[in-house]
Design a protein around this nucleic acid. Structure first.
Lengths: 226, 226
DNA sequence: TCGATAAGTGGTTAAGTATACAGTATGTTC
DNA sequence: GAACATACTGTATACTTAACCACTTATCGA
């Protein structure tokens, strides 16, 4: 899948490695452009994207100096496991579970423009089956181990029971909470003492249930642990 | 000449070290404030200045993430005792990543009798690649969202850096902790206020590093969420 | 000759970020 | 008890940076 780097891409990559070794942090687009003699930071931007496509680096979106080397890991001079992955037949799986990032207000969750990428895991790995993975924002569920950036595996359904972790849409905002209902009164509990429960009266407010949480994945595709 | 750091300053410094080890770049003021619970980024700014006055860090002005550690030693090799575990290697199976449950004292982790089942996820989904999944016992890492029963994706290596989540073998017991080393002294931190850090003197005690944590999976194959 | 990819220029915009200023509160030191 | 350092909250501003759009040039294989 990943072709070798072009000469120019290699120059950019080398500069990133050099900068990180020298300064302890990765370069900005402008710094790359200056070092390589570009007049526009956009040239650097496009090289970075090419490098990411080819798996040489990972870009953390909306983050200054958000460049990571996959082999951030100390290099093993002699790879004891002798795996030395050939990278030849690591083809991207055709399908897998779609990963949903930002959800624009008013639009359905499973719209193509929300799909960041795919996670090569069968839907049936979770029970009930997962329909998509939702990238979690905020720390409102941290006490049960659901952190910012985690992927929440979601089973689409509107039928939920008390105590389940639900993905709900409230005032066009998508949120993950623990569900409880008493008559027409629904309470959405955060699992974090800093967040107050949300009370909804179904007679006066609308609440859409998008699904229930059935699993969590963290660390895939470069997201960090800890 | 420079006075020792105060406790709070040490916290800030530790967070900087941890962030650099983990992400490859230093934190912003806002990230420090969030991590330490400050409501204002200015609190972080003033701590950084104090750290610079005391020589613990250097600040590059007008530069995002412009923090440098004077002792720029990126990677550290732990192990002095050269554990040399007998590569009891389970081949990368077409079935996916092996899930390791209980690990009997004295036996290598990747022994066939420990394998519960397989998780159908490619090793390369994580970076660096995962070699196996370890079922976590106990709540010592709950503050970073690693709970009892979770599967920790582990990359086999003995080379670890400060701040990483490691799988270590201490007195024939396998444990997951955050790693920190200063000379002969290794500290394994739990991420849970109820657990005290574990101090190891490499001159008198043996510590084997089995690998580093690269991801977490919860909820697969029937395990419940929340 | 067409289409795709690489490698740029040039400019815009919104978000990320460093940093200044004005306070409050609590210690420790002389 | 005044002087000073630590440890913050809160607000504001300007610079830094990522990311987008429109466009150009050149190369390569079908």
């Amino acid at each position: 899948m990943s072709r070798p780097l072009t000469a120019r891409q290699q120059h950019v990559f080398d500069f990133i490695v050099k900068t990180m070794g020298e300064f302890g942090y990765p370069p900005t687009r402008a710094e790359i452009a200056k070092a390589l003699g570009f007049r526009s930071p956009n040239a650097a931007e496009e090289h970075l994207r090419a490098l990411e496509r080819k798996g040489a680096i990972r870009i953390i979106r909306n983050t200054s100096r958000g460049i990571r080397l996959p082999n951030q890991e100390p290099q093993e001079l002699v790879d004891s496991t002798a795996s030395a992955l050939p990278a030849a037949n690591i083809e991207a799986s055709p399908a897998g579970l779609p990963v949903i990032g930002e959800v624009a207000a008013g639009s359905p969750i499973l719209a193509a423009e929300h799909i960041d990428r795919y996670c090569p895991l069968p839907a049936e790995y979770f029970t009930p089956k997962a329909d998509y993975l939702l990238r979690v924002r905020g720390l409102s569920m941290k006490d049960i181990g659901i952190l910012e950036g985690d992927l929440l595996a979601v089973h689409r359904t509107e039928r939920v029971r008390d105590g389940q972790i639900v993905v709900a849409r409230l005032d066009d905002e998508v949120t993950v909470k623990r569900f409880k209902r008493q008559g027409h009164q629904v309470t959405l509990f955060a699992e974090n003492a800093d967040f107050a429960p949300i009370e909804i009266d179904l007679r006066s407010q609308s609440l859409d249930i998008e699904g229930v949480g059935v699993g969590v994945i963290r660390g895939g595709n470069g997201q960090a642990l800890g």
